[in-house]
Design a protein around this nucleic acid. Structure first.
Length: 496
RNA sequence: GUCCCCAUCGUCUAGCCCGGUCCAGGACACCGCCCUUUCACGGCGGCGACACGAGUUCAAAUCUCGUUGGGGACGCCA
């Protein structure tokens, strides 16, 4: 399909891919894919002081992780100096800009006094109409001029796809710098040139750029170029309704990746943060989102980022995922946590699938698996203290567990299933006049060390007859010889 | 401080452009019940919002103005 839609994401490599930039990328990507257009990656690394190659890498990796594949780029602004130089010259000769010899120090002083007097600081236009003689004198002083745009009179109006008609009187805009004294372009200028050169049709970016847009439109006009369409996105806020910041935790995409979130869930969640398909759909796959996406359904109000909802959505994705696929995703995590090696995982794949199946409904993050399924892999069980006091202190519990172990042992390996184990346990409970729960709880604790987790008989079957027996007998033995080591002494803590 | 933008449940939102069908719908979270060996999942139910004030109109969440609140921008940074 051919389309003239061309959009871009233009991160600056001063940090990892920020959650806000990621959302902007999602919207751009969705828009491009919906229209069969191109999605372009441009790295805005003109500020050498704050740009680092490792972030260039990290940003690309995060974008790939999210599945936001780009069609062109990455282009680096730092490598486009010639292009900018040509356009700077063109602007200088256009008559729409002038040389300004004010030094940064002079401007800083003015800015300071303006601030002190609580006046708005705007460039005063001192160099607007310099005579040739005055220019010569400044040059003789060794001053190097910056290039400022001469702001024309009249209101600047454009139609934003999200916000509608936006107006700004030109009196509100100062004669801003387009090229520095060294000849390099400032952000607004480089941005316009790149968007033009790359034939960008729609600039979709954060609302923090809204005032830049007026300036950029002026640059397009000064250069005699046709501006693209603009769509500003509301900025997402943190829980405190402030700009999302480090203090509330994760601001970069890799942090969410490390938290055990799935890229599909992340993209889905980000897309819904400020946009809705117009109906009640929430869990949407990529194709659905692409088909439904439209910029004029973007809500102009700033949304608050809600981690709980993201985690819920992640859980939904985990539940819907194919077990093999889920295990594949879990494999690196399992290896990292030392629960099992790749070889161990792959050689017991079908057993691993059972473990995963027993866990999936209980997971919201992938990391929940390594945290709560560890008992499947470790032979040494640490018993939950409260649980131990509650379930291991009942008179007769030792005899019950011993009897259960004997019952399990009497079954052949082939016949040792969860149904069989359950029948045995219930049978035993009935014979000894106890409720099944009286046996179930201590058994769970003896096998897993925990009071919560997967269905008990699933656990028994997955662990297998011998491992289950081993764990029960180990517990019984400890209870007989050294109960104090697992049952906390003293007054029980007050129930909350 | 100046300018710009925004304003529906705690949160994400539908509805707003084209007033009546909205004593405002869905989702997350929270609470209760059911299922159940625990935790989850699932099911059912509950709590919960049109920021405020004027105006227009037979009728306003929907249109207008103001107030308040929130956000953003005010660099030879991007």
């Amino acid at each position: 399909m051919t389309s003239s839609v061309r959009v871009r994401i233009a991160p600056s490599p001063s940090g990892h891919l920020h959650i806000g930039t990621a959302r902007t990328a999602v919207y751009n990507w969705l828009f491009a894919r919906h229209h069969g257009g191109q999605f372009i990656l441009r790295i805005e690394d003109t500020d050498a002081e704050r740009s680092f190659p490792e972030y260039v890498d990290s940003i690309q990796q995060s974008l790939k992780w999210l599945g936001l594949n780009w069609d062109e780029g990455p282009f680096f602004q730092s490598q486009r100096g010639d292009i900018y130089a040509r356009w700077v010259a063109r602007l200088r000769d256009s008559g729409h800009a002038y040389l300004c010899y004010c030094t940064p120090e002079e401007l800083a002083a003015k800015r300071e006094s303006a601030q002190r007097e609580k006046r708005p600081m705007r460039y005063d236009g001192r160099c607007r109409d310099l005579t040739a003689g005055e220019r010569a004198r400044f040059e003789a002083e060794g001053r190097r001029p910056a290039l400022r745009l001469r702001i024309p009179d009249g209101d600047i109006v454009y139609k934003d796809i999200v916000y509608g008609e936006l107006t700004r009187p030109s009196a509100e805009i100062e004669d801003f710098v387009c090229a520095r004294a060294e000849g390099t372009p400032t952000y607004n200028f480089a941005c316009v040139i790149d968007d033009h050169e790359m034939a960008i049709s729609h600039v979709i970016r954060g609302n923090d750029h809204q005032t830049n847009t007026f300036k950029q439109i002026l640059i397009y006009r000064a250069l005699g170029l046709e501006p693209p369409q603009f769509a500003h996105l509301p900025l997402n806020l943190g829980q405190d309704r402030r700009k999302i910041s480090k203090r509330e935790g994760a601001t970069s995409i890799i942090e969410y990746q490390q938290m055990g979130l799935l890229p599909e869930a992340m993209v889905n969640f980000l897309a819904l943060l400020g946009w809705s398909p117009g109906d009640d759909r929430e869990i949407m796959d990529r194709d659905e989102m692409i088909a439904a996406f439209s910029l004029d359904r973007v809500n102009p109000a700033n949304p608050v980022f809600d981690l709980q909802k993201l985690e819920w959505m992640n859980g939904e994705y985990i539940r819907r995922m194919d077990a093999n696929q889920l295990l594949t995703r879990l494999t690196p995590l399992i290896m990292e946590s030392g629960l099992a090696s790749r070889l161990e995982i792959e050689s017991r794949w079908s057993w691993m699938l059972k473990v995963v199946e027993s866990m999936r409904e209980r997971m919201r993050r992938l990391t929940d698996f390594t945290e709560t399924a560890a008992f499947y892999f470790r032979h040494q069980i640490a018993y939950d203290a409260k649980g131990a006091r509650k379930y291991f202190t009942r008179p007769g519990v030792i005899d019950d567990l011993t009897a259960l172990a004997e019952a399990f042992e009497s079954v052949t390996l082939e016949q040792f299933t969860k149904e069989r184990a359950e029948a045995q346990l219930r049978d035993l409970a009935e014979k000894s006049g106890r409720s099944p729960a009286d046996l179930i709880h201590p058994l769970r604790l003896s096998l897993t060390g925990m009071t919560a987790g997967p269905g008990l008989f699933d656990i028994v079957e997955i662990l297998g007859r011998d491992e289950s027996l081993k764990r029960i007998r180990h517990l019984v033995n400890t209870l007989k010889t050294n109960p104090a080591s697992i049952i906390p002494q003293g007054e029980p803590e007050k129930a909350k």
